[in-house]
């Protein structure tokens, strides 16, 4: 079926009407789960991931406590209804899920300032709700926003993006249709330094093409960073306004002074 769909047509448009370097619409919701210390629901087009962060809190398992820093614990689940092609229920031992969790853990371990919280643990729960390509990218971006919301100190934001090549034409942010047909790379960068924390590729690609994608992904990082920062600032502003409102109601005298 997919062979009949043009990945990139003569007019330079992709199957979903985007240009080569165009990203899908990003939506961030940082109020997704009230019970968590920080949470984020991030959607890149039709790919949607919910991440909840608990902690830093006292480590549950004594044996896993580290005396000089916090331990990070990541659990990932992929909802059976998340993709149209593969609707099997993935258990806890599923290799793909375990790998996703291990990758997220390895990506954030050097970024989170764990040494500030010795003998504690940070739990990150990743739920993949919808899949349409770029699951790792969405999971990493959602984890960044969730960690920021939880107030966990980070060295920098981590911004992930997927890139692929179709007949020597590089493109960004692939859908699952494109991912199935093209070699693709997921790159996570830290926008302040421009350094890469994660580079993951599982399909064959020439070195020169790879270099091109790496450069493009480096340029896409700051764009995603801008979106994320705007969301975090908005959320903080909302919280601040909400606090001010509560103050005014409980202490009308102060509110009157402020009004003057």
């Amino acid at each position: 079926m997919s062979s009949r769909i043009e990945i990139l047509n003569e007019g330079g448009f992709r199957s979903d009407g985007r240009r080569q370097y165009e990203l899908r619409e990003m939506t961030f919701d940082s109020t997704a789960q009230a019970g968590a210390d920080g949470s984020a629901r991030v959607a890149h087009g039709l790919t949607e991931v919910l991440v909840s962060v608990f902690g830093p809190r006292e480590a549950r398992v004594r044996a896993q406590t580290l005396h000089d820093r916090a331990s990070i614990h990541v659990e990932a689940t992929i909802a059976p209804f998340s993709s149209t092609s593969d609707r099997r229920r993935r258990g806890r031992g599923d290799k793909r899920t375990l790998e996703l969790a291990a990758t997220i853990k390895a990506t954030f371990e050097p970024v989170v300032q764990t040494s500030l919280y010795p003998r504690s643990q940070i739990d990150i729960f990743v739920h993949v709700l919808q899949q349409d390509g770029g699951v790792l990218q969405a999971s990493i971006n959602a984890t960044t926003v969730a960690l920021v919301n939880a107030g966990v100190p980070l060295a920098d934001y981590v911004c992930a993006v997927t890139g692929g090549v179709h007949a020597a034409a590089p493109m960004l942010d692939l859908t699952s249709l494109e991912e199935n047909d093209l070699p693709h790379v997921t790159v996570a960068s830290m926008p302040r330094s421009g350094h890469l924390t994660l580079v993951s590729m599982e399909t064959r690609l020439h070195v020169d093409r790879f270099e091109e994608i790496l450069r493009l992904a480096g340029e896409a990082g700051p764009v995603i960073h801008k979106e994320m920062r705007a969301v975090v600032r908005q959320r903080t502003k909302d919280l601040l306004d909400g606090m001010g409102k509560g103050l005014r109601e409980s202490n009308p005298a102060e509110a009157m002074i402020e009004d003057e």
Partner: peptide, 14 residues
């Protein structure tokens, strides 16, 4: 390149 695998660890410049 068949596989590139750099998961976490020290951030590297491109």
């Amino acid at each position: 390149l068949a596989v590139v695998h750099k998961a976490g660890g020290l951030p590297l410049a491109p």
